[in-house]
Design a binder for these strands. Structure first.
Lengths: 129, 129
DNA sequence: ATTCATTGATTACATCTGTAATAGTAAGTC
DNA sequence: GACTTACTATTACAGATGTAATCAATGAAT
C-alpha cells in the first residue's frame, strides 16, 4: 500500500468515523473542519481508492466509500515508523519529551499507569504458560 | 523553518552525533548505513542549509557543517504534530498500540514508570508553589 | 602561471502532494 | 429520446522530494 499523505489522512479519518459514506457526505463533513473545495476532496477520495486504502460500491449515480485500511493498522504502522525514524525505536524518550514540555495531563498519566498495570498483568499471565 | 524531509533527517542525524563535520565525513558516515551517492548527500546538505536547519563555516576549500536545528527541538515538534495528526493529540493510545502489539519491552516499562514517578514528583512540587 | 582535482552551486528529472478545473458519463426530467 | 444534472475520471500545475549529473570556482601540484 502506497503511503497515505496528510491531506488524504483527513479524508480517511472521516470514513473511519462512519462508513460507508457518499462523496458528498465526506465533503460536507470536511467543509466544517477544513476549507477544501469539493473538487479537492473528490480528488483525495480518488487517490485513496487508487492506493487501495478505500473501496467503493455503486449506489445509483453516486459511490459509497468505505475504508479498507483500518485505523488501528494505520496508527500502528505510522507509530512504528515514526518512532524508528525520530527516536531510534524507543518510545520512552517520546513520552519524556512530552513530560518535559508540560504536555502531559493527569489524565494521560492515569492512562499510562493503567497501561503499565495491564502490561504487567499480561506478563505475569505469560510466565504461567 | 521549512519541513525537514525524511532523507534530510538522516543527514541531520549524522550532524547531531558530531559537529562540525565536513561534507565528506557526512558522506562517509552515511555510506555505511545507506546507499546514497556522494552527490545525493551533498544535495541534501545543501537543502538543509537553504532551509536554515544547518549552518557551515569555510575551512579552506571545504565547508564544515553544523546543525542549527537541535535534535530535542526537532523531536518535540515532530512528536506534537504526529500525535495531533494520528492520535488526536493523546499520547496514551500510542503507547497502548505498542503494548497491544508486543512492542513494549520490560526496559520501556521501567523507563515509563520512572517518568511517571518524576512527573508526579514535579506535580507535587508545583502544588507547593 | 597553467593544469588538475576537489568541492560547493546549479540544473535535471520523475514522482508525490496540495489544490483544483475540465471532460466524460450516466441518471433523472420533460 | 433529448436535455440537463450530478457524479466520477482525467488533466493541470506548482512546489516538495529522492536521487543524481553537470557547471563553476578555488586551491594544490608542477
Amino acid at each position: 500500500m502506497k503511503d497515505i499523505s496528510q491531506a488524504e489522512l483527513e479524508v480517511l479519518k472521516i470514513l473511519w468515523l462512519q462508513a460507508p459514506q457518499s462523496a458528498n457526505q465526506v465533503v460536507d463533513a470536511l467543509a466544517d473542519a477544513s476549507q477544501w473545495h469539493e473538487k479537492t476532496v473528490k480528488t483525495l477520495l480518488n487517490r485513496l481508492v487508487n492506493k487501495g486504502a478505500v473501496s467503493f460500491e455503486k449506489d445509483g449515480r453516486a459511490y459509497l466509500y468505505s475504508p479498507v485500511l483500518q485505523q488501528q493498522d494505520y496508527q500502528h504502522k505510522e507509530s512504528q515508523s515514526f518512532i524508528a525514524r525520530v527516536f531510534e525505536g524507543r518510545i520512552a524518550p517520546l513520552v519524556a519529551g512530552f513530560a518535559a514540555h508540560k504536555n502531559l495531563q493527569a489524565s494521560d498519566i492515569d492512562e499510562l499507569k493503567q497501561l503499565i498495570a495491564d502490561w504487567e498483568l499480561a506478563q505475569q499471565g505469560k510466565s504461567d504458560e
